[in-house]
Design a protein around this nucleic acid. Structure first.
Lengths: 329, 329
DNA sequence: CTGCTTTGTGTATACGATTACACAAACGAT
DNA sequence: ATCGTTTGTGTAATCGTATACACAAAGCAG
């Protein structure tokens, strides 16, 4: 029943040493006799002693906490990456704090709250947060922010994603299949990453004298993909829809199939983005502009390690997307 | 550039008051003149001062950190719940630390690490961790553990889930449709929750003189559902498969369709469990034993609030599952 | 055996907030 | 005008650890 946790001072008494020695027993490279250390660790185990990380953080000025700013946990498009990152952080004895919020103001509030916990690193996945906000809120703790916005800021490291070649490849195939009228279904109205993705495809189309003829905005969810596709297909005669992510693409395909009775890729081509595992499921088999999530999260960890090692300045990594061919385009 | 965060003592000097007064300005119900408070808050905003949560936690003995022990983030079956819970925690100014690990030993290590951060609450979703382990590791901090294991322990609050009625309903329908030979595809070999779910269906079958004739074990993933279903259908002539979760059910359905050329529900009935959003997608339309995730997470929060309010003793809540009817059974 | 370095340990302080206690000023009632 | 209460603020201790510094013991070279 909630007995108070034993402190180093109390353990010191029990082990007949000073509290400083207790601390040293738990620090790998500190001057301490190996006999003393072994004895202390034994007594510690006996009494269930573990150094208090909160107190250590206060003293150290390092919390080993990492804030992860995300749009959503539930959406598979992000969840896969989050899972990979969380595992990698944990392997380094870093604990992830998830900041997840749909509403913009709440998100800033949340980031302010997390910043009071003196997080060592901040990973901003959410493209709704501007780099400037993130820098402002976290500037005092440790100013590395891993993000994907191509903004040059001395305190921000970022990862850039280039999908132009893969988008070109995909558009090439679809155009050669005879499709002529393209629609783009965005995930959000305001995010820059959505605009970037759209540009990859718009450029690929322009190269072939084509263009985005119809457009709609969803919220990265299946339901929005379904609904917007229905509306889109009713108001415009398009034979290809490029979607902002895979989940919306699945929704759009279901809409085309079910509501309009069209089949892919004969009647209409559907393209997703992200390359999540679900896209490759037999029932989906989506053609999608795919990002290597493992490489992506490795890059995030690389940036974090640069920061842990106190390497100065911003760092930048660029990743290239590839096309995953399915039966929808 | 990583300027040190300003402290209350420094701000005190700037505002011409003592650090105690600074602290009071940030504590809602403390004796402080409203003029002083306003002035301090203004100066604080100007210098970007925010009380250091780590220091406060050390003094308070309350970290406002919550450990969430989960099997996976990436699996949609859990992710939806996690998302709901994270939102609810954040609304209460509680920050969630995710502990996510497939491997059993790592998980215990991770829990030990989190416990050194003096988390206020622990929510154990992962059914691979025994209550005893959780109680042992977290007994010193705050001993409330919200879990689903029906174990009576004075320091553990739990949520029980009853799906027996819904399972009965589902089996009834399938049996009336003429299906006679049932298989059960488990999510894990060792978890008690999986055994519980299996029992609901086994009991419903027994009531009708039927039984589980074939069995297989997966890992809650699509791929394992697909693979195990193929093996299962090759070695046993079954016409219904009950799956440990929805994702495996989708895998099993794809296997039956694609590899065996069977269609649902005519040739074979497939049943999932969880009732995730994806199960209702047009392309899946799964029949599933569904749990109300909102009610579920509300229950978790209710237990946490009991604990925040220092209500003594363990608390227990029971939730009932319902059947969601789709086109797969 | 002397002087110097290394090793192991204790003492005391810092980390940045909260809060019990003390006390002065202001206020109200008689 | 006096006493008692309330209000606002400062002082100092506390939370649990890490570490700079001091110092004794031990090891070693000459």
């Amino acid at each position: 029943m909630s007995k108070r946790r034993i402190t180093s001072k109390e353990l010191a008494k029990l082990a007949g040493v000073s509290s400083a020695t207790i601390s040293r027993a738990f620090s790998p490279d500190s001057r301490i006799g190996s006999a003393t250390r072994d004895r202390i660790l034994a007594v510690a185990r006996e009494y269930g002693y573990q150094p208090n990380a909160i107190a250590r953080s206060l003293n150290n000025q390092r919390s080993r906490l990492v804030a992860l700013v995300v749009n959503a946990i539930g959406n598979p498009c992000e969840a896969e990456e989050q899972q990979l990152l969380v595992h990698r952080l944990q392997a380094r004895q870093l604990l992830p704090i998830i900041l997840c919020c749909a509403d913009h103001d709440d998100r800033l509030q949340l980031m302010r709250l997390a910043s009071t916990y003196q997080v060592d690193h901040v990973v901003v996945f959410s493209d709704m947060v501007s780099m400037q906000d993130a820098v402002d809120i976290f500037h005092t703790t440790k100013p590395i922010i891993v993000s994907f916005e191509p903004l040059e800021n001395e305190n921000v490291s970022n990862i850039r994603i280039d999908g132009s070649a893969a988008a070109d490849e995909i558009i090439d195939k679809i155009a050669r299949d005879g499709k002529k009228r393209f629609a783009y279904l965005s995930g959000t109205k305001s995010s820059w990453i959505d605009k970037l993705r759209r540009k990859w495809f718009a450029d690929a189309l322009a190269k072939r004298g084509l263009s985005i003829e119809a457009e709609a905005f969803g919220d990265y969810s299946y339901d929005s993909g379904f609904k917007e596709a229905v509306l889109l297909l009713h108001r415009a005669k398009v034979d290809a829809i490029i979607c902002g992510n895979d989940v919306m693409a699945i929704g759009a395909r279901d809409a085309a199939r079910r509501v309009l009775g069209k089949s892919t890729p004969t009647d209409i081509a559907i393209v997703g983005q992200d390359g999540i595992a679900m896209a490759a499921w037999d029932c989906n088999d989506l053609t999608t502009l795919s990002l290597d999530h493992v490489a992506f999260m490795d890059a995030v960890v690389e940036l974090i390690e640069c920061h842990e090692a106190d390497l100065e300045g911003p760092h930048s990594i660029t990743l290239t997307c590839t096309a995953r061919w399915g039966s929808t385009a």
